[in-house]
Write a protein that binds this DNA or RNA. Structure first.
Length: 568
RNA sequence: CGGGGCGUAGCGCAGUCUGGUAGCGCACACGGUUCGGGACCGUGGAGUCGGAGGUUCAAAUCCUCUCGCCCCGACCA
């Protein structure tokens, strides 16, 4: 492809609204343009990258035995009402009516639709297992789209659904998808971690996220430094630390004045007590229940864990008014001693002796607080894991990372099949619900995540497998020699099946080099008058500083070798 | 949804406080000189100042309403 014929509108200055590196570079490189909040046009380069990621996904899904289908983007409300998600989905679901007044939505995901498809066609265990997938545009009316392609309202997603006769079968399907996903993310040139995750309100068992590691990632994850356990902090377990021996004598419970000192930091400074000796006390509302939660002063309550411990799907931090009602004191002075509500405490609190906590009285705290003696909570793992915390599986410790959720696989069980009566007859003629799994990959999100992981100050550094082109031939100078040599190399590489972009524009060299770095094609072949005089062509990788200086005849072979090695 | 902020030429911005008839840089078009890391000179085109209403002799500027967008948080099958 000739650069001069292609629409690649690079710009020096990105719109002020772009903050994250991938957003800025996609805009500047002429890959995408914004049409509305979280809605983007893909220009030629952007579309090429998106297609490449989709192709890799498709190849690996097919290799894993999944079959491609295509479901509509416009979905009748009827099916959603069957599972109750028409209401449960809330504002994220973009709804509208047709001319007859019938309710529809734009599909944010397709469990109901695929389950309906399968229940109509599958009767017998002989037709199972089956794994169906599609690569399709989804719409979710996100409260807050952000980061360009990282979190959009309309996005391209691969969603697959497995249907098995039983849990063992589903586990096999799950394992196959996990393997396929590892191949996909690896082929895309991404550094990622597979982590245990929350499966959400509608979830089932076995949930794993494929987290693409990046500083700018929305998700916090932890991974053990000595075994392979890794998890989203939403669910990461924390091993009970070694409990220090209790001191010979415990201090007596004592009320001390702490006027106006509300936060852990204020109280700890005021009383000269380390935050680790403080008992952070928060009031939560879970359905009809009001619950007091205690964690160590330097720890954070994990609301996903708390909800699970309480057997609820979600919990909310109490309002200031609720806190006053529950504790009899303003926010900042709550404590478990004498508390009338249910009291839950994180297990790390067991190791706090002679601690400090609010006295449920304005301007007062207790010192010498000892769990067991002064209050009797229910113990649970309630805090968020962080760097350095002990691994629950071995003697290692956690390292903390940030990640972008590129994929999520989990087993749904019979959640949808039971509600929608998607059943089969087993060998004994007994009707049973199909056991399902579901597997998503954010195709457009991967495009952005790859840049978050692979860029520098000058622009994008695409992994070769998903780059819009594999090779960029840059002609420097307008002489007949340059043109002839460029044409020769361009045609040789193109003829051998490589994806080549030839910068044949009548631009100054500086402009071409800047654009080259910006759009980030992995291998650049520079054909210039200066080099040609010495019979030299330059071959340079985008991620390396130095160019290889080779002869015209060597250049094509060298590039071919480099590309083949990285195609994967 | 809570907090903060922004809408002026395709992009980045100034002008708004203190009302007086819209400007700078980049980009774009043309001419010339340049040509290995975003050239220079000259000329030129391009803006319902997000929208509606109001105040005023006069509104980008003041007032009211409204729409859109961004950032932090909440939310995220």
């Amino acid at each position: 492809m000739r650069y001069s014929k292609m629409l690649i509108p690079t710009v020096k200055e990105a719109p002020a609204e772009a903050i994250s590196p991938s957003h800025v570079l996609l805009l500047r490189g002429g890959y995408i343009r914004k049409l509305g909040a979280g809605i983007y046009n893909y220009l030629p380069l952007g579309h090429r990258v998106l297609s490449k990621v989709a192709r890799i996904v498709r190849e690996e899904m097919n290799r894993a035995g999944a079959q491609e289908v295509l479901m509509p983007a416009v979905l009748p409300a009827e099916l959603w009402q069957e599972t109750g998600r028409w209401d449960a989905f809330g504002d994220v679901l973009l709804r509208f009516k047709d001319r007859k007044g019938t309710d529809f939505c734009l599909g944010p995901t397709h469990e109901e639709i695929i389950t309906d498809m399968v229940r109509r066609e599958v009767r017998s265990y002989r037709q199972l297992p089956v794994n169906l997938y599609q690569i399709q545009t989804k719409f979710r009316d996100e409260a807050r789209p952000r980061g360009g392609l990282l979190r959009t309202r309309e996005f391209l997603m691969k969603d697959a659904y497995s249907f098995d006769v039983d849990d063992e079968g589903a586990a096999r399907s799950f394992a196959q998808m996990r393997e396929a996903y590892e191949r996909i993310f690896t082929r895309c040139g991404l550094t990622f971690r597979i982590v245990s995750a929350d499966s959400g309100a509608m979830g089932g068992s076995m949930s794993a996220e494929f987290q693409i590691l990046a500083e700018t990632g929305e998700d916090a994850i932890v991974a053990c430094d000595s075994c392979d356990y890794a998890a989203n902090v939403e669910v990461a377990q924390v091993a009970l630390p070694q409990r220090p021996a209790a001191p010979a004598t415990l201090a007596p419970l004592k009320k001390v004045p702490t006027p106006g000192k509300r936060t852990i930091e204020e109280v700890s400074t005021f009383l000269g007590v380390a935050p680790q000796k403080m008992l952070k006390t928060l009031i939560y509302v879970a359905g009809q229940r009001v619950v007091t939660v205690v964690v160590r002063g330097d720890h954070e309550v994990n609301e996903v864990k708390l909800a699970r411990a309480l057997g609820m799907s979600e919990v909310f931090l109490a309002t200031d008014a609720d806190v006053v009602r529950a504790t009899g004191a303003p926010v900042g002075f709550a404590g478990p001693v004498g508390m009338k509500t249910e009291v839950y405490a994180d297990q790390a609190v067991q190791a706090v002796f002679d601690g400090v906590t609010g006295a449920n009285e304005a301007g007062a705290h207790y010192t010498g607080v000892n769990p067991g003696r002064d209050f009797a909570p229910r113990w649970a793992d309630l805090r968020s894991a962080g760097e350095g915390d002990p691994c629950p599986r071995c003697s290692g410790h956690y390292k903390a990372y940030r990640g972008i959720e590129g994929g999520h696989i989990f087993i749904l069980g019979t959640h949808y099949s039971a509600k929608m009566k998607a059943t089969y007859l087993d060998a004994a003629g007994v009707e049973k619900p199909i056991v399902m799994g579901c597997y998503g990959i954010g195709v457009s999100r991967i495009v952005a995540a790859a840049i978050e992981q692979h860029h520098d100050a000058d622009g994008i550094r695409w992994p070769l497998a998903i780059a819009p082109f594999e090779v960029l031939v840059t002609s420097v100078g307008a002489s007949a020699e340059v043109r002839a040599a460029s044409t020769e190399i361009y045609e040789a590489l193109s003829g051998d099946g490589f994806e080549v972009l030839w910068d044949d524009r009548e631009e100054r060299p500086g402009v071409k080099f800047k654009d080259a770095d910006l759009i980030g094609i992995p291998i650049r072949v520079t054909v210039g008058e200066r080099g040609l005089k010495e019979g030299v062509i330059e071959v340079k990788r985008r991620d390396q500083k130095e160019a290889a200086r080779v002869t015209r005849s060597e250049a094509v072979a060298l590039v071919a070798q480099m590309v083949r090695r990285e195609r994967g």
